[in-house]
Design a binder for these strands. Structure first.
Lengths: 102, 102
DNA sequence: GCAAGGTATGTCGAATCAGGCATAGCACAA
DNA sequence: TTGTGCTATGCCTGATTCGACATACCTTGC
């Protein structure tokens, strides 16, 4: 957020902070959520790069369109395990995956 | 395995191969298992480096000694999610974790 | 030998996560 | 507008994973 906007909001009585602050996440929880977010975004990029729909990717993964949507959204019901398996299935190497989270 | 030993075994009628071959793992499955193994070994190293017993680490993680043993063994019942959370709890940064799997 | 401290293994009930279905939302062409 | 293709969301049910407990299995020192 740009500083000017933040000043305007705070002048209007709003408190401005990060999602982690709002949700009272510990540093470890924040890092976990961040890693998950990065992996989910990478999955979406990989799918779009191959010109696939969520349904097509789902079929390739042996899953469903709705689950792919949730994977890409970093939904609470999606584990990092699932994201990692999906990315490996998309042909990413462990090294490439490491670059995503590091 | 050293070549001489392999020759001896094969001369005795044994077939020699990798775990992945024996278990008929796809490349993706192999990579997944490998990542999990690397993470579990890193957790053990981190624990020993701090001079903790499994029980002490378990308490720090809000878990149990038996589960820590399984984490370090890369047991089937242990998810990569759990290993990642444990490593973050041990103070590793996402960057350090990336170096483990990459 | 055996006792103690640490680690591994098997099992359980509870919690979480999986895939799948239904359907809502959303953008765009006809 | 309506229809069509794609994506998002809510819920259900079964599978997996969780922490926990009991107990077996080492080592090491007595």
């Amino acid at each position: 957020m740009d500083p000017a906007k933040q000043r305007r909001l705070e002048a209007a009585g709003w408190r401005v902070g990060t999602a982690a602050e709002f949700l009272k996440l510990s540093p470890e929880e924040s890092a976990y959520v961040e890693m998950k977010f990065l992996l989910s975004r990478r999955l979406r990029d990989a799918r779009l790069k191959e010109g696939l729909t969520q349904a097509e990717l789902a079929e390739r993964l042996g899953s469903s369109q709705s689950r792919v949507a949730k994977m890409e959204a970093g939904d609470r019901s999606v584990s990092i395990d699932l994201l990692l398996r999906a990315l490996l299935q998309m042909g990413l190497s462990p090294r490439q995956i490491a670059r995503v989270i590091g």
